[in-house]
């Protein structure tokens, strides 16, 4: 049924999934499909032509190449952050939901993590060390898991208070048996929705970090590309911005939109499917 819930995506979710898969595909096959090496330099600010399909940027990088390699970074950050934070968040939610005694303590910890704004925190961190991509992932996951836990915890509690769990306890099932066999599968669709949403947030956060210019300058990401473009105010005086600024913003928007589509679609599908319909 859980797998079914995924294959049961509505039209919105399907569109989102296709876009995401497309971005993942270009990220993975970047060295093969990109027209140039990401380090090779050309004339700066060349308009789109047959040699440079999307033109070149201020330093002379081919915009299309940067765009393709940028997908790599975004997908890596999104996927890794989502995996780590969903895993920790889910585990926390299961423990808090099933062990009543621990719930108040865990809730306070979650509150603490939820009020820390993550972007300013990264600004502070980057003052001490140059944040390469792995530090970005770690910091984003460090602040991302609490939200996942917060969203999943009520569902865990709700399922844990169902009569069938009481029946199982009476039969003699252990707590971890119940959690693994009954509660985890019940939270699975919501966890997937959270995973996708968290991935989207991480991609946006990473882009913001790049946009502020706080990332390792050698990183080729969409955020960095926007940052570079904006540093030259000349681009707004001409139509250069249409090919230097437009494509990375468009890619970012499309990717975020698709993750949002998928998670909304999943969430609207989770709840009614759990209910028993009776007239």
């Amino acid at each position: 049924m859980d797998v079914k819930a995924l294959s049961f995506l509505g039209i919105k979710g399907k569109i989102g999934l296709i876009i995401i898969l497309f971005v993942v595909f270009i990220g993975i096959t970047a060295p093969v499909i990109s027209p140039y090496d990401p380090t090779s330099l050309f004339e700066p600010f060349e308009p789109p032509s047959s040699t440079h399909l999307l033109g070149t940027d201020d330093v002379g990088h081919d915009v299309l190449t940067i765009l393709i390699y940028g997908a790599r970074v975004s997908i890596l950050v999104g996927f890794a952050t989502a995996t780590i934070s969903t895993f920790i968040g889910l585990l926390t939610a299961l423990i808090a939901g099933c062990y009543e005694g621990l719930d108040p303590i865990i809730s306070r910890i979650l509150d603490f993590f939820l009020v820390i704004p993550r972007i300013p925190f990264i600004v502070i961190i980057s003052a001490f060390l140059t944040p390469n991509i792995f530090i970005v992932i770690l910091v984003l996951s460090f602040f991302g898991w609490a939200k996942t836990a917060r969203v999943i915890k009520p569902l865990v509690k709700q399922v844990y208070s169902r009569e069938y769990v009481k029946r199982l306890k009476c039969i003699g099932a252990g707590n971890w048996y119940i959690i693994l066999r009954h509660i985890l599968p019940a939270t699975f669709p919501l966890a997937v929705a959270q995973f996708v949403l968290e991935g989207g947030h991480a991609i946006l956060a990473e882009a913001s970090i790049g946009f502020f210019g706080l990332e390792d300058p050698s990183t080729l990401s969409w955020g960095m590309e926007i940052n570079h473009a904006l540093q030259k105010s000349i681009i707004f005086l001409t139509n250069i911005w249409t090919w230097v600024l437009g494509p990375p913003i468009l890619m970012l928007t499309i990717t975020l939109l698709s993750t949002t589509f998928i998670s909304i679609d999943l969430e609207t599908r989770i709840n009614p499917r759990l209910k028993v319909r009776s007239w």
């Binding site: 049924m1 859980d2 169902r162 009569e163 069938y164 009481k166 029946r167 199982l168 009476c170 039969i171 003699g172 099932a173 048996y177 009954h182 599968p185 019940a186 759990l274 028993v276 009776s278």
Partner: peptide, 28 residues
């Protein structure tokens, strides 16, 4: 053993009736 009030609440909605019935046997 315990038979709860709401029959539709008594079983895991994701499991087939067969697995739900067999569960006590499997646990023990």
């Amino acid at each position: 053993s315990y038979i709860p009030q709401h029959p539709e609440e008594a079983f895991d909605p994701r499991w087939r009736l067969y697995d739900n019935i067999a569960e006590p046997l499997r646990i023990h």
